[in-house]
Write a protein that binds this DNA or RNA. Structure first.
Lengths: 232, 232
DNA sequence: TCAATAGTGTCTATGAGACACTATCAG
DNA sequence: CTGATAGTGTCTCATAGACACTATTGA
């Protein structure tokens, strides 16, 4: 190889963008996986993602959203960078760099047709070890899960796994599925009332007992971080 | 261009690795900047970094460390990924992706010769706005500073800005410089005693008054995160 | 009525903030 | 001695955990 850093002569790493998109259905945390149409790992399941289209993607965030939309028909309301993974041997084609995003969406908001297509599926996070997954994607998913759990301890991110209007009970249940443990309803309500990011609507919905108030994320707000964690 | 995603035909983004290396000297938080030898922005100051050498770097972490070592002659004891920045217009040569690391080192451990070379300098974080900085590096530095401040609220990372043996007073002072506010000595000691990551040695050093105990990071430990933040 | 879920009142536990107090060094 | 820095004792404050209690719904 040449010593020069001239763009046209330099050997570039293979750069891709992948996303770990989570949702909650059937009381379980699920990840979106896609059946690979091309080599390498053709036919096995991997994270949705691919190459940047440098002519139309303005940033890699757009790349991630575009790829997710191709698979689900919708863009997730929450997307953040997880981490970049790199190495000479993660991809048989050579040194590769993968920018991994971590995203959340409400199951209700994903086009229902997704289930009928057999090259896209939601996989229960607890059954992933049994599957054969492309590249080091199993590892990436595990990372993403830990980040989601961590953020759930000090923020309200799980709200993005819920529809626009939701009850305290629904939020509590989503948080408990993510953490794998129960939390105190009281603590959750205290947090909801101390942040300015949600609005308590006057509407109530039936939920098997007393009617529950509906909450909704205020528009344009950023997720706030609490100064203390819930107990892990 | 071609529509194909075949590796050899695909237009790749320009991928680089840059690092924001912090240290503390003269009671100020400083960032390592390097005078650019090549276009673009030849002659202005930018973050140390460059392209991955895919034949010898096993991961991008190694790339970051290698580039830092070229400039400082030592590898920082703390290095973590900050974030990846991308866009069509950050680099005049085209769509670029930069993986930015955030690193800490004790000023005492940086070879002293660094100051005599006029293409590498430590810049006070508060005077950066006055400088002309290459690319969007000013923005990247600001991001890194915020991450450092945030982590300082819930971890002991600032220890990596200190020599192997340090006093509570030194640590307190480093934290205060990073945060830009004073903290309670008592709170710091409580944290030091509640974690298992440091060891209180029997040795004491003179520091203008009563002798101070020396502490040291236990070897092989990971930084632990506290469940609460110091007040921001 | 009862079962179920929503929501409150309130006590405890943890750990940070504040700050006065004591301890020990140099000179 | 004094001044400086190290380190402690202890009270207050904020917020999470625990959990019993009340409220409101459908059947």
């Amino acid at each position: 190889m040449t010593d020069s850093y001239n763009i046209n002569e330099y050997k570039h790493p293979l750069f891709t963008v992948d996303s770990v998109l989570f949702t909650i259905t059937d009381s379980a945390l699920k990840v979106l996986l896609v059946k690979r149409a091309n080599s390498p790992f053709e036919g096995s399941w991997g994270l949705p993602g691919g190459f940047v289209d440098i002519d139309s993607d303005s940033t890699t965030d757009i790349t991630a959203l575009r790829k997710l939309k191709e698979k689900t028909n919708v863009e997730p309301p929450y997307l953040e960078q997880l981490q970049t993974f790199s190495g000479a041997h993660r991809d048989p084609r050579g040194f590769s760099v993968t920018l991994v995003y971590f995203a959340l969406i409400a199951a209700q908001n994903v086009s229902t047709h997704i289930k009928s297509i057999d090259d896209v599926q939601w996989v229960d996070i607890n059954t992933i070890q049994d599957l054969s997954i492309a590249f080091d994607h199993k590892h990436l998913i595990e990372h993403a899960k830990q980040r989601l759990q961590q953020k759930t301890l000090y923020s309200m991110v799980p709200i993005y796994c819920l529809p626009e209007y939701f009850t305290v009970g629904q939020l509590k249940s989503v948080i408990e599925i993510i953490l794998g443990k129960t939390i105190q309803r009281k603590s959750l309500i205290r947090r909801l009332e101390s942040t300015n990011i949600v609005e308590k609507s006057d509407e109530k919905v039936s939920s098997g007992g007393r009617l529950a108030h509906l909450y909704t994320l205020k528009s344009g707000v950023d997720i706030v971080n609490f100064e203390r964690n819930l107990s892990a």
